[in-house]
Nucleic acid binder design. Structure first.
Lengths: 225, 225
DNA sequence: ACATAGGTATGATTTTGGTCATATTTAAAT
DNA sequence: ATTTAAATATGACCAAAATCATACCTATGT
């Protein structure tokens, strides 16, 4: 799918600190893949044996809870590396990764990344930084989950999506999720997510055409109680 | 408080991969401190400028949510390093650290740790591993928060405490928390935590003498619905 | 020993959100 | 184009948990 040393995507993740010769080496052993929305990249409990660099699209990181409900723990987007945690701790995947849109990903085998981690201190420092960032986000989600209402969490999710995916020319969010996805991010029943989105719509905070959602009043969403 | 190169505590964290000469260097610039239960080690938003190595005791990592409720995100125990995340990302603290028991901690200035991270690949690899572990725990807590009932979370908390702190000769947990602390870990109202602990007691799953709690039936706690 | 504050306990009531049931709309497959 | 399945929507009801109120217990300092 092209050469790593010419790929601009690496600017967005820890791979930016690799040298040209390392990138050329990686080009030689990486594999690229196109995925359709809904395809599974890897499952909880699976050996990943490398990291995925997301060239295009979005992916849901989910976990099935014992009651059979799926929780979306995080969205991984274009430019992110996927599978860092498992690589570093040398463990099987803790989460399942499912394409939330059509995607293009490159897979870099574990030993290549481990080699670079052992040689290039900037690279390992950058990976430390990106894991630190993930950790902070996760800590903040824990607090939100524990202390905020479903309505507040849904409002925050909408604002997060606007912030991170932007809007198209008509003001609709550049990411399409089902109501069930919203419920699985927020950690609520699908019916509750639907009801609350309807309510936001009635109150004029958002508008919706099918799955496409437009945020009309971000300020009011921030103040939802 | 003694010399790092002779301190056994470092075996429990990333500092184990430092060489003798580095430990001697660190001994020369570290400071040690005794803290009483309830004392604040650092607050959310504060510049930490180093890491703390916990020699003795337990510390709560908390965050105040906008509704004024405190959430305990994690307990940091003897042997752990505190402040890794802020150090690596060069940001202010995301959480507040409060002594949950009397403590002994050593403070190592930022530049020393950064120096070792830049020199010693084993050290940075071990720090990556410990952050990966924290990240996995946090992801799992998110799922629990979103999908499990308060009762289940409280039962899990009790089992977690038994697992990580052990029991004294009479079977009581080796960690003393208030009912409010339990509520702040689980993410519920103090009254709810009290009620559920009373219920567990009535059902014989635990017994309690004041703040001391004994787990009588771990198997049943695992099966709480 | 007594006052005080913080912590524990429990009841009554309300709110939030989950579950179940049932339409209706939309998208996908052939 | 028609069928079928999946997604959305809404009502009715129920369960979990928050809130408010009050009482009691237990350390702590004076």
């Amino acid at each position: 799918m092209g050469k790593c040393e010419q790929c601009i995507i690496r600017q967005f993740n820890a791979l930016k600190s690799l040298h040209k010769e390392d990138l050329i080496r990686i080009t030689g052993c990486k594999t690229s893949k196109k995925l359709r929305k809904g395809e599974v990249i890897f499952e909880e409990g699976e050996n990943i044996n490398g990291v995925f660099c997301i060239r295009e699209g979005v992916c849901k990181l989910t976990k099935l809870s014992p009651n059979g409900k799926e929780q979306i723990v995080r969205l991984v987007i274009k430019g992110d590396l996927l599978g860092q945690r498992s690589l570093v701790s040398n463990e099987v995947a803790n989460l399942t990764a499912v394409a939330a849109s059509d995607m293009e990903v490159c897979f870099i085998p574990k030993q290549e990344i481990l080699f670079d981690l052992s040689q290039n201190i900037n690279f390992s420092m950058n990976m430390l930084k990106s894991m630190a960032e993930e950790l902070k986000l996760s800590e903040n989600i824990i607090v939100d989950m524990a202390q905020k209402t479903v309505k507040q969490r849904l409002a925050e999710t909408l604002l997060y999506l606007k912030e991170n995916f932007g809007e198209d020319i008509n003001g609709f969010l550049n990411i399409i999720l089902t109501r069930e996805d919203y419920a699985n991010i927020v950690g609520t029943a699908t019916e509750s997510a639907i009801r609350l989105l309807s309510q936001f719509k009635k109150e004029g905070l958002i508008s919706a055409e099918g799955k496409k959602i437009k945020i009309n009043n971000a300020e009011a969403l921030k103040l939802v109680e």
